[in-house]
Amino acid sequence: MGLAAMPYLLPNYYVSIATQVLIFAVLAMSIDILAGYTGRTPLGHGAIFGTATYVTIYWATTLGGSPWTRMLVGIAAATTVAAIFALLAIRTSGVYFLLLTLALGMIVWGVCLRWTSVTGGENGLRGAVRPAFLATHASFYYLVLGAVAVITFVMWRFVNSPFGLTLRGIKDSESRMRSLGYNVPLHLFLAFTVSGFFAGVAGAIYAMFNSFVSPSTVALTQSVAGLLMAITGGIGTLFGSFVGAAAIISLENFVSSYTERWLSVLGLMFVLIMVFAPEGIVGRIRMILDRRRG
């Protein structure tokens, strides 16, 4: 109810921040599918997210078409990139998976930075992706709220489906799942591709939100930010991504207006969370509630 009433209660600046929180929560949830439910921590989802943004805006500025076609093409491009990443990465695990996804993300960043004729290089791409009826902050916020509600429900069903339970089994013991006859590489490939699909959805919505994309959108910092949002909220707790995204984006926007050293405040927050609540904010709350029940 509070989320629905927000545009009527708060100025447009706060509505814009809330919209950003919802978009990056989807990115964080997509990372949580791999990190929390499959046991593979990726550092390349910023590149997948940014690919959707780049393709959506490029399609809008160069090829025209309806806003929904642009978004679908952007999501398809991101899913394709995720599938390519998955084919290369499924044989690795742990720190090697992290490094490989980092390297693949850096390749995408390098291409976006250097291919100036298509991506605009450091200048980026600017394009009006939003249709006229979504021009106001409130109308766009409601669209994003509705879309994110549907996406969250689909993701929740996905991780609680038999396929999702198989992923948890793979996270617990890959060799056990292999000996039980499960096709572990195929499950990992599909999990990565589905995760990339949702990251692409977030990227396409971000293209509508920002109407501008630059290499920083596909950079390592974007991947790290998404991962930190998932960790802060609680890895393995899908809804923790909302808490993590809200915490980090609020800190970025509000603390920076009071001090130049807002990055130090952000870093201190992460240190405190890792020391006192390593399972994340939502994970910690769940632990406390379980202890009281039990």
Binding site: L88, T92, Y96, L100, A103, I107, G110, V111
Partner: peptide
């Protein structure tokens, strides 16, 4: 020669090595 490929040249080999030798170039399973 091709500045467009600069980051590909740096991170491409790293990605290929890890893709075909998941435990690193000289890595061995424990």
């Amino acid at each position: 020669m091709f500045p467009e490929l600069a980051y590909f040249v740096i991170f491409g080999p790293m990605a290929l090595i890890l893709a075909f030798r998941p435990l690193g170039l000289f890595g061995r399973a424990a």
